[in-house]
Write a protein that binds this DNA or RNA. Structure first.
Lengths: 238, 238
DNA sequence: TCCGCAGTTTGCGCTGCCGCAAATCACGCC
DNA sequence: GGCGTGATTTGCGGCAGCGCAAACTGCGGA
């Protein structure tokens, strides 16, 4: 159980990397080979931006390992996290929706590995590869759904409920089973949680302290383990 | 100046209805004729649902006249308005993003006229009509952008700023120039505004009263006129 | 013309959450 | 092993905005 960050190695660009991912799962080995040959792979340290809001959308990306936080920065410098993207998904695909700049900034929430392709290949992917467009749009649809949920939450839930919801979502999406519960398997600070829920790190800290006292969660620096998910669910409905 | 609701007449399904709308603007008369021949047109009273959240997405729609509010209803019965759609746009197109049920309820914010087509024609439209898919996805992209803005607003702005922002957005999207300012040209209640901003109708009422006293807005029952947009913009930044 | 109701206004008290401030803690580095 | 920095905790005071309640008003229908 060593938490020391082991430097992730760039994988060999092997066909098996893509075969199980929805946008590529219908393709044959030769097609995937072509796709891989056109890709650039790169490792990103934790907290690094893959691309910035407003920059021309020159490449689209596939996250092979790690996590991405999609954030926007307000005129006053506050960050708001709009979305979390787990490994295995495309990101930076605003082009598919007719945008030519990135609408938000993508920051790695943990050390990550991503492939990317120049945007000019997008059209080729869509027309040549069966199921690519459909699956991509399905991904977009899911993200739209999540955003919609976020709006409803922000409009109707109190802070405590929002933080509980955020924790549960992270646990569901990226939870790793550990001895005494489920741990969110990337580093996450009080600040991060506050940016996801529209509150302050102080309030998040108070909530986590209270929950820890009641045995609902356990948290160390940059780490959160949920011990009693059911109790958290209760909280979201209170 | 008669505000009496005059019953809107169903238009003749004339080619000119569609020629200036982006998803159809590249098509020739014959194509548009075909599209119109397959369409059903219908008038909706104010406040009527065109489709309901969770229902199978059987038809997609084009709003010819009026306004649509896209709302979601929470388990506790609260309504949250996610989006406003003005005349000229497609709606109920979740299918384009791989969904097979409607993710939200569409309610007319004013008496409205809409065309609709059965979902099975969607694929045909996409493949046969040049530019249809692209423009549709562009519309989706814009809506995603708006939703993103909503999230950022909810997370960072105070209630007063959110209500001011909502008013400005409505004025920009659907404003009609009148004698002493710009009027939102469909009926809108304090309740509606509160559902757009995640607050209560009481708070909205207090804000509007205060603004009216300062000459920023003028409001009657279900009507709001913005007299000093610039001052409202100031408010959103304060 | 009158009535009823949906929409609106306003007062009052309370509290959830923020802002500020300061202390403490835990990790990585030298 | 000590130090510095970033992360976390906690206390305290203040107030924005909510909940509740009650009164008012303009519009449409009978």
């Amino acid at each position: 159980m060593d938490d020391r960050p082991t430097r992730k190695a760039l994988p060999r660009l092997d066909e098996s990397l893509l075969t199980h991912l929805p946008p590529f799962s219908r393709l044959d080995r030769r097609q995937i080979r072509t796709i891989l040959d056109q890709a650039t792979s790169r490792r990103y340290e934790e907290g690094v931006a893959v691309f910035h809001e407003g920059a021309p959308a020159e490449r689209f990306h596939l996250l092979l390992d790690g996590y991405i936080r999609v954030v926007r920065i307000t005129p006053t410098g506050e960050q708001v996290t709009a979305l979390h993207i787990p490994a295995g998904q495309l990101f930076g695909i605003a082009q598919a929706l007719g945008r030519n700049t990135y609408p938000a900034t993508a920051i790695t929430a943990a050390e990550s590995i991503a492939l990317s392709w120049p945007m000019r290949l997008w059209q080729a992917f869509v027309t040549e590869y069966d199921g690519f467009a459909t699956e991509t749009y399905r991904t977009v649809g899911n993200r739209v759904g999540e955003m919609n949920n976020r709006i409803v939450e922000m409009a109707t839930l109190r802070v405590e409920q929002r933080v509980a919801t955020a924790l549960l979502r992270l646990v569901n999406q990226t939870g790793r089973k550990v001895e005494d519960g489920i741990e969110i398997d990337f580093p996450i600070t009080r600040q991060d949680l506050s940016e996801m829920t529209g509150t302050t790190l102080h309030t998040v800290s108070r909530l986590l302290s209270a929950w820890e006292k009641d045995g609902l969660v356990r948290s160390r620096r940059k780490r959160v383990t949920v011990r009693d998910p059911h109790a958290l669910v209760e909280l979201t409905q209170a």
